[in-house]
């Protein structure tokens, strides 16, 4: 099974965005949309049609942090899986994320195979039986196609 469709990733660290994007692209023909802040993620999410099927949010971002971004998306009725990225998985952080409606969390130093496995698991749980091929996005992306 392959990861398909549109994915939104928000992290203030461009290298982390690039890394996670590479992992996503290795999992299938996915279109990755990147945002550098919670505000940008919300704007980007609303501008995409159809909306992304998977959202990945860094918890620790300046401005609106990942948890608040997550909370706002859930409050709008967004039901797609939202996976949180964190560099420090304290009980408080993780419980906060799950309580706010996160589908899962990933510590950033997780080995790549494990990140891939978790993202695929999340995807499998929601993927439509026969997913339509992704529409090429006109959004500028920081990641060159592989």
């Amino acid at each position: 099974m392959q990861l398909t469709g549109h994915v939104l990733i928000a992290d203030d660290e461009p290298h982390v965005r690039r890394y996670i994007s590479l992992i996503l692209r290795a999992l299938g023909p996915v279109v990755v949309h990147q945002a550098a802040s919670g505000e940008a993620a919300l704007t980007l999410f609303h501008s995409l049609s159809p909306p992304p099927q998977l959202v990945i949010l860094d918890i620790n971002m300046p401005g609106i942090d990942g948890i608040e971004t997550l909370r706002r998306l859930r409050a709008e009725g967004v039901e797609c899986p939202i996976v949180m990225l964190t560099s420090l998985a304290t009980r408080q952080v993780v419980e906060g994320a799950i309580a706010a409606g996160a589908t899962g969390y990933l510590r950033k130093d997780t080995p790549r195979a494990e990140i891939s496995a978790l993202l695929m698991d999340v995807w499998k749980a929601v993927a439509p039986a026969d997913a339509p091929p992704p529409v090429e996005s006109s959004e500028p992306s920081l990641v060159p196609p592989l």
Partner: peptide, 10 residues
Amino acid sequence: RNPLSAVSGL
């Protein structure tokens, strides 16, 4: 962890 994870992953 943030930059190290990225360096290692990239």
